[in-house]
Design a protein around this nucleic acid. Structure first.
Lengths: 253, 253
DNA sequence: GAGTGGTCTAGACCACGAA
DNA sequence: TCGTGGTCTAGACCACTCC
């Protein structure tokens, strides 16, 4: 099964062969692969080599290993599509904050845990908010869950001059969320910018989002602007890449 | 240095320790880590264990190993920010296709290699384009490079009924790109949707994009719609996540 | 208890890069 | 030539899952 003289490392050949079998449907989603010991016999290499091969497939997100049970072909969870409309005033007036809007669109039961605290703005946040570094900001640090599975982290920061005395500084910001409170306080929102990227999760993110190896995170930095083009909130969002897709609509003019 | 009785695997403790030193600035971006043999002595574990630790940091994109040279702390390449305006008619009329518009925004020298071919639409593409499966589509399969480094893959498909006899079926679609040709042919574009996600690259993608381990790809599926809400193009774009960020503007109403 | 993956060792040899 | 990472072996013992 393994060509010793091809120049391609044995563990790569094994990984490629298993990957090919998965693509060919020989192993379907959820199927169990042969045990590592069986693969040792099948390919005629040592167990560490087999483990290197499986390690490759794991970091690529192709398979998942379960201790004591076996290695299984990964089946993709349903993707939740997040539309831009989740940020619309209509949604807010229907009592939904952004994440609850997501839930309505995505069809899952949302829960969220919030931690509120205050801190001086660091250079990046100050720059994005157009304030001086050190200005006190209100931080709403949230873990959002869909059907009790944590799927999104959100760290929202607003200058405290805007939040003092409002429900934004409460754990429950009230119906329509912080954006609704901002508008009530006279800061009418005009638009948001979202800067989207992706990277591998930090260990902390991997653990709270219960990410399996080989799952990147999508990062969104959302900035809310008022009708006077003043930034009033910067929100750093991290979500599991295998569970979300973001949909944007762009005018052609 | 290693606590044998903590329950935390040795290779994890080593990885965490090195990661902490990087975060603390003890090793800065571009710095070389001690050699694996030195780390063996420093931590008192075997080389495979050290290699497991470094493997973790590699798949997390924290360090890069260079054969024969050493292991280095990764320094993030400058991120190219892609704004929505790259799809505007103004950009097209300034002779720029979407990728050339990206280049103007991102400040890099763009080149691109195109392969044109025709094939029947598969179920997904047919569905997105609103045509019957099997309908012949024109495929523009491109590898885009910035300063001669491949950074983006783009697979654009249009129903051949729209492209027959136009420069879209030529390797060089002409100034303003395929979108300009479509509008000249009377298919005035109204808007695009972009569906953004992320995942680990396939081996083929990792090799053509020259991705180091631990770099995910950002995927964008762009669909172009005409003023009659007819989809005319579906474009699957794959880009290195460490080199791009996508910026979208969302109205608040 | 039997089978699974998880961790770890102490070596060996190879391929690459730089001096 | 020497130091670097890359690959590979043949074991060992542990932790988890299921019967």
């Amino acid at each position: 099964m393994i060509d010793r003289y091809s120049g391609v490392p044995a563990y790569r050949q094994v990984a490629d062969d298993i990957r090919a079998k998965i693509n060919a449907g020989e192993y379907g989603p959820g199927d169990q692969l042969p045990s590592e010991r069986d693969l040792v016999d099948a390919y005629g290499v040592s167990r560490p080599t087999i483990r290197d091969a499986i390690g490759l497939l794991r970091t690529d997100g192709v398979v998942i290993a379960e201790h004591g049970k076996g290695v299984f072909v990964r089946s993709a969870p349903p993707v939740i599509r997040l539309a831009m409309s989740r940020l619309s005033r209509t949604e807010r007036e229907a009592n939904r904050g952004a994440f609850l809007g997501d839930a309505a669109t995505g069809g899952f039961t949302p829960t969220s845990a919030v931690r509120i605290y205050f801190e001086p703005a660091d250079v990046r946040v100050a720059d994005l908010l157009g304030v001086d570094p050190g200005t006190e900001v209100c931080v709403r640090d949230r873990v959002m869950s869909a059907n009790d599975v944590p799927v999104q982290l959100s760290m929202s920061r607003l200058p405290r001059t805007l939040t003092a005395g409002t429900a934004i500084e409460q754990e429950n910001a009230g119906s329509g969320g912080s954006y609704a409170r901002l508008e009530e306080a006279g800061h009418r929102l005009a638009y948001f910018t979202e800067t989207v990227g992706a990277r591998m999760p930090t260990p902390a993110e991997a653990s709270t989002l219960q990410l399996t190896a080989g799952t990147p995170v999508v990062t969104v930095t959302r900035i809310a602007f008022t009708t006077t083009d003043t930034p009033v909130e910067v929100n750093d969002i991290v979500m599991a890449a295998d569970r979300f897709a973001l949909v944007y609509k762009i005018p052609a003019d």
